[in-house]
């Protein structure tokens, strides 16, 4: 089983983004950019997902939704913040209803900058997330083995 790599599933949620990063994430799953060639697949169900792609900043209403989706995902999990708004709040940081980037609510592993983030950088972020997911998974397995023996 050592040579088998995980094929993590992606979940995409739109925080309060302007749609720009959103449609770029979707464009990444279509044949021109095809992020699925790296062994990931897009899903709509948080309970199936391993990698959480989130676009847009956090506002008072979606805060709980994001937290809930994060908790519903099985561990280990990787969070990718796509776009400047998801990283820091971006241009909307000063708006009354924006709390800031995604890391104000859940831990973020990978930040993808850009307004809107380009498909190339999204792919880069996903590839890094796949590697990190494998790493987290191996670590978990080692821990389990150590606990057994």
């Amino acid at each position: 089983m050592k040579n088998i790599h995980k094929s993590p599933w992606l979940l995409h949620y739109d925080g309060s983004s302007c749609n720009g990063c959103d449609i770029e994430v979707l464009a990444c799953t279509t044949p021109v950019y095809d992020v699925e060639r790296f062994g990931v697949v897009n899903t709509g169900n948080p309970m199936h997902a391993d990698i959480f792609l989130i676009t847009g900043g956090i506002n008072s209403q979606n805060e709980d939704v994001v937290k809930q989706i994060y908790e519903q995902m099985p561990g280990p999990k990787v969070v990718v913040a796509v776009g400047t708004c998801a990283c820091t709040g971006g241009i909307f940081k000063e708006c009354y209803n924006i709390k800031g980037g995604v890391d104000t609510v859940i831990p973020v592993d990978i930040y993808v900058p850009g307004c809107a983030a380009r498909p190339e950088s999204i792919i880069d972020g996903v590839v890094k997330a796949v590697a990190l997911f494998q790493e987290k998974h191996d670590k978990k397995k080692r821990k389990e083995r150590a606990a057994k023996s």
Partner: peptide, 15 residues
């Protein structure tokens, strides 16, 4: 509605 509400119309006072 309101999951994406940012309140960007109010940014006129800051930008």
């Amino acid at each position: 509605i309101g999951y994406v509400h940012r309140g960007l119309e109010s940014l006129v006072a800051k930008k």
